[in-house]
Amino acid sequence: MSELVEVNNLTKVYEKKKVALSQVNLIIPRGKIIGLLGPNGSGKTTLIKLISGLLVATEGEILINGSKPGPESKSVVSYLPERTYFQSSMKVKELIDYFADFYQDFRPERAKQMLMNLNINEDARLKTLSKGTKEKVQLIMVMSRDAQLYVLDEPIAGVDPAARDYILRTIISNYNENATVLLSTHLISDIEKILDEVIFIREGKVVLQDTVENIRESKGKSVDTYFREVFAC
């Protein structure tokens, strides 16, 4: 079986010659929870959008299950954008139907259960929800798919610590053993215990890919502390 995601010599240059990613090589295996860590503007979101098929590479390639991003890869990749896009007067329960129409692998019962656990009313209209609640709803939708790859861009940034714990637990207990979660964050200390591996990215280049346990063992410090050293300003 081919790797879940293989990134070869990937370069992305935006207009005005801004280089967002430069010659990135990565392998993202199945069945792992992987943190994509880097300072602001390091290229995390660009990489995530390329994997999700929302941007096109300038050079190099991304292979998901051995093929280039397209309709096929989108059916197995569940993507959480960094911004919430819920401005409509749609109700939460209508959103569930909407996702169920869109994605064959969407599991409405799972979404409903999570909404209940977080005390979110299905009859509420999306535009009336607070920013944090919108984020929760959006993450619930994304995690309620039976995807092979969940790509989460800053999934816990805007939610309160208690809900954050619940969400991390949700990620741990919901993802299937063959699925991989790739998530970007700068809240490393909150999240490192649930990660298998981390990828450090700086100025569009991958500077490290290693397991959390290796880093803790060899450096004698948490990934959070190590990150602060590597990226010290």
Partner: peptide, 14 residues
Amino acid sequence: VRELAAQAGVNPNT
């Protein structure tokens, strides 16, 4: 494993 991982808030593979 899954239950314990969720309780402890750690990665299931760990």
